[in-house]
Design a protein around this nucleic acid. Structure first.
Lengths: 227, 227
DNA sequence: AATTATAAAAATGTAGATATTTTTAAATAA
DNA sequence: TTATTTAAAAATATCTACATTTTTATAATT
């Protein structure tokens, strides 16, 4: 039995519900502002009220869901204000982490970053557009994770993940626009290439600045798509 | 009826359990590594298993508790490695937030910082040592919160709070040593005064550097007290 | 000693009971 | 009529008590 299958089978109902709900909120199956009715959730996920509550209050901590005592749960709203706030925080945090990664990253970090950059630049021979989207997004994330890991700070990486989760619904809006536009994709390719250059040159200030701008760049696109 | 009492009376069992448990873990009533037995918790807090699980899994997200599926919950261990990691992250994040506060803070921010600094410098006419501890800690937190609020980033402030919560058990070790030592207290007074000067001078680089060092300064004290 | 069987303890989940909020409809007042 | 209040009903959230599953401890067996 694979490790993954073992983990899945061991996971309790609350964990299963948490994963499914989170995915469905990110995918937009549950829209911002939607009421998350316990009776519906119980039925559609086939999970009891207890574990479901447990999952929901975790998502409240993740800021993907809001709760009012005795009045249940709703999918958290999306707004231009939140978009700006999340991306401002992400840009500053990611810039900080990049700076630390340049200071602290070793040879093996450099190697991994270079490897992930290469994989990302070679997203070509794919079948469907949907697969393209998935593969590019996955490799793009791996590339950025590889850079960030160089900072060697467990806690900063956890904070980074928390912001990424909160940004994910906004990112989804940007992703389609970017991956399906040859020129946008080429722009990203250039940004990534410049970034890698700065990292390998150990040019702290330049890497920090490039990362800051790279993170903020999707904002105009997302702003236009925001409902 | 006061707002607080109303909030208390409206809060559900899970929220009550979360608050009580968190306090008791920070106070050390539940020690690092302790098993959090559902039957004991149910009895001592007089709260059912469902809400108690909900509270526990929130504390897992807060990193104050660890969970193993089907094997229950334990108070998270404390370690020198975690101390170093948390304080490294805190110092960098707080320095970043301070820098932004100097950039973004307005007149009313300056006024609040100055006011809180004044209150903190006047913790004197108190009755018991225990009260002294409580009052100083409370005002010290308010002072630092006032500075941080200047950054105007909801998300960065949330990340800051998350790290503060994780640092709280370590901070408690340092607090007694500092508040009950006249020389240590004088040292802090000086650091705070320098910090305020840099803030009001809008000296970004200096404020950032002072804050970075201020956050890291408790580490040697805590290291010696760590069990 | 190592392995297996058994019993006890504990975690987790379910179903139904209870409490709260929301909706609906009727009654009252402007 | 229109708006407001009130009371009852329905919908919903939450909790409790119990049932089930899993783990852990103990004893028995090889």
């Amino acid at each position: 039995m694979s490790k993954d299958t073992a983990a899945q089978s061991k996971a309790n109902q609350a964990t299963i519900a948490y994963r499914l709900l989170k995915q469905d909120i990110i995918k937009g199956i549950h829209q911002p502002g939607d009421k998350l009715l316990m009776s519906h959730l119980k039925e559609s996920y086939d999970i009891g009220a207890g574990p479901m509550r447990e999952a929901l209050s975790q998502l409240v901590a993740d800021r993907l869901v809001t709760a009012i005592s005795q009045r249940g749960f709703r999918v958290a709203e999306m707004s231009l204000e939140e978009l700006t706030d999340i991306y401002d925080a992400r840009a500053h945090l990611e810039a900080l982490i990049t700076e630390l990664a340049v200071e602290r990253g070793d040879d093996s970090w450099e190697a991994t970053v270079l490897g992930e950059a290469h994989k990302l630049s070679r997203v070509n021979e794919v079948n469907s557009p949907e697969e393209m989207l998935e593969v590019w997004d996955s490799r793009h994330k791996s590339f950025h994770n590889a850079i960030a890991n160089g900072c060697s700070s467990v806690k900063l990486l956890e904070l980074r993940m928390s912001l990424l989760d909160q940004a994910e619904r906004y990112r989804q809006l940007w992703l389609r626009q970017t991956v399906f536009s040859q020129s946008a994709l080429e722009g990203k390719r250039q940004e990534h290439s410049d970034l890698v250059d700065a990292l390998l040159d150990r040019d702290k200030a330049r890497a920090k600045q490039l990362m800051y701008e790279h993170i903020l760049s999707p904002i105009p696109v997302i702003r236009n798509l925001l409902p």
